[in-house]
Amino acid sequence: MKPSPYSKKRNELLSSFPSFIWLVILFVIPIGVIFAIAFKAADPYGGIGEEWTLSTIKELFNPIYPVIFWRTIYLSLISTFIAILLALPVGYYIARTGKRMREIFLVLVIVPFWTNFLIRIIAWKVLLHPDGFIKKILVTLSLADPNSILLYRPETVLIVLVYSHLPFAILPIYAAAEKFDFSLIEAARDLGASRFQAFRKVFLPGISSGIVAAFIVVLIPSLGSYVIPELVGGASVEMIGSKIAQRSFVDRNLPHASALSALLMLAVFIPLLFAALWQRKAALTGKFK
């Protein structure tokens, strides 16, 4: 018997029901809780006050925040941009190489994840330490002053952000490049395009879905990063993640931390919304056909 459209629709709803419940319980409700707590006051023992209040929100206008927010956004955007820029040739190369080498390269991209994230960041701290390996090389090559400090600078945070998020940029770009029809590059070259023109006018539009995905999966963890600025940025290069951690662990002020989180969430949500709209528009114009 042929299923009626109604029963088909019912089947779809039924089968998506468990994941829907999962999302509501573990995602929608907690987010709602965080937004709600932002409208409470902290009690002196680190708990959450009874009363509804706007005082926590008002504290967000503290003059230290604009600087930190701005730093969070520009460091995240620049690190995302650099990560994608680095991931493009890597993804292109992995997709074009032979099957065997491709598997080796993919493992190499993933291998860093086998080491704990915290250890890897602390390793950077060791490398960049005033007596560390990198510092010594730079001084030997007289590229750095012996008295200069490599740690606790925005550039350092940027480098480590790019380092830790690069695999997240490479993987979606590789996935898109792997599906890309490379005979199109030949066609472009045949029609008179230089290597760079073929890359820009044919390859980049061809893997745009991968670039959008890479942008999202790198930007979001960058915006929320806390360990990296904390360890290699220190007090002089704080990001909003560091502040949220301070408010909850040091000040024991959960409402304030929640308010900051809510604000960050909005900052994450807006680019996501744009990306989704852009992708939808592209899908409607047949770009991903």
Partner: peptide, 20 residues
């Protein structure tokens, strides 16, 4: 000469039209 410097153009078997 690289392909873009040759005064030859190709019609590919699978056409290789740019999908975008």
């Amino acid at each position: 000469l690289p392909p873009n410097k040759r005064k030859l153009n190709t019609v590919f078997q699978n056409y290789a039209l740019f999908p975008h």
